[in-house]
């Protein structure tokens, strides 16, 4: 695998105070990498250093092997999509004009841009005929951020940076948009760096997750490794705090992450196996297990793994005593 982004001994000071002392991180091409941490941990600053919105105090960042400070800043930014927490669609432009912002600057033919806009809108479930000429103020928050994402990917950048893009949205829109990010990532295979303070979001989206605290990367791992082998109490508690208050509301995907799945399809009649989405709760799982032997956990209709009652009981007995 080739490297898309590499932080080398990156240091960042604000007003003489060091907020990020020495950051080293490699993000692979095609990876969906999530930076998670509490507020003030330096995750957003780290993200903004990639597209030079924040200058580095020391060290360097390589994008596709090239030091970012040696590339003209505008052409660097043209290779990167950017999605903001505040969404920040340009209020005087229509939906179509917003999406066209970067392709237009890059000089893409008008006809081609228009075609792209229609395709993208259709892909996120917004009828192009109806939405093309709307103004941002006429859209719901969730719809606005869909356009925000389309604006970022319209020029098919190798890299997309997302700065807590869904934290201002309602839970339903948030889930829909998380699914959208997964779908788009699966389709375009671009590198995504996604910043969030929500561990659940990190677990759901990340191929790998980097946990940040006080400007330092504490642990960088896959969701399962993070869940099963937290390096210290901070990570364990951060992870634990993301658990639902009521144990019945814990989703089955989490049990799989922590306990591990049965990866082999159990040799029973398929009628004995109930399919459940990763987002389904334990309550649903218990109901399913009253008349089935196994639960098949699926994500986007793809089976992730299998759980039986023993595994779930094991999760309940030994893990996650919520403080």
């Amino acid at each position: 695998m080739t490297t898309a982004i590499e932080f080398q001994h990156v240091q960042k000071d604000f007003n003489g105070q060091t907020v990020i002392p020495d950051l080293n991180l490699t993000i692979d091409q095609g990876e969906l990498f999530v930076l998670v941490g509490t507020s003030g941990s330096g995750k957003t600053t780290s993200l903004k250093m990639i597209n030079c919105l924040e200058p580095l105090t020391a060290g360097k960042i390589l994008v596709n092997g090239t030091d970012t400070t040696t590339i003209p800043v505008r052409s660097l930014r043209w290779q990167m999509g950017y999605v903001l927490q505040q969404i920040a669609l340009f209020p005087t432009m229509t939906v179509a004009q917003n999406i066209a912002v970067i392709p237009e600057m890059k000089g893409t033919a008008k006809k081609e841009i228009n075609q792209t806009i229609d395709e993208l809108l259709a892909e996120v479930g917004l009828d192009p005929k109806e939405y093309r000429d709307r103004m941002p103020s006429e859209l719901s928050g969730g719809e606005q951020q869909r356009i925000g994402i389309l604006r970022a990917i319209a020029a098919q950048p190798d890299i997309v940076l997302m700065d807590e893009p869904f934290s201002a949205l309602d839970p339903i829109s948030r889930q829909q948009l998380q699914d959208l990010v997964l779908r788009l990532h699966a389709r375009y295979h671009n590198t995504i760096v996604f910043v969030t303070h929500d561990m659940n979001e990190a677990l759901k989206l990340g191929d790998r997750i980097g946990v940040m605290q006080h400007g330092q990367l504490i642990q960088v791992d896959t969701p399962a490794a993070l869940a099963q082998h937290p390096v210290n109490d901070f990570v364990r508690n951060f992870f634990g705090a993301s658990r639902a208050k009521n144990v019945y509301d814990v989703y089955v995907g989490r049990v799989g992450l922590i306990q591990g799945y049965l990866t082999e399809k159990p040799s029973v009649a398929s009628g004995r196996i109930q399919s459940l989405d990763v987002q389904a709760t334990l309550r649903t799982a218990f109901t399913a297990l009253t008349d089935h032997d196994y639960v098949a956990v699926t994500e986007e209709n793809r089976v992730v793994g299998y759980l039986d009652s023993q595994r779930i009981v094991a999760y309940l007995s030994q893990y996650e005593e919520v403080s």
Partner: peptide, 24 residues
């Protein structure tokens, strides 16, 4: 945040002025 978006998309100073700031 709108200024930041314009910068992040690599708009030149002039383009930002005429496409984003003046219309707003």
């Amino acid at each position: 945040s709108i200024e930041e978006a314009a910068d992040a998309f690599g708009m030149s100073r002039m383009r930002k002025l005429f496409k984003v700031e003046l219309p707003i």
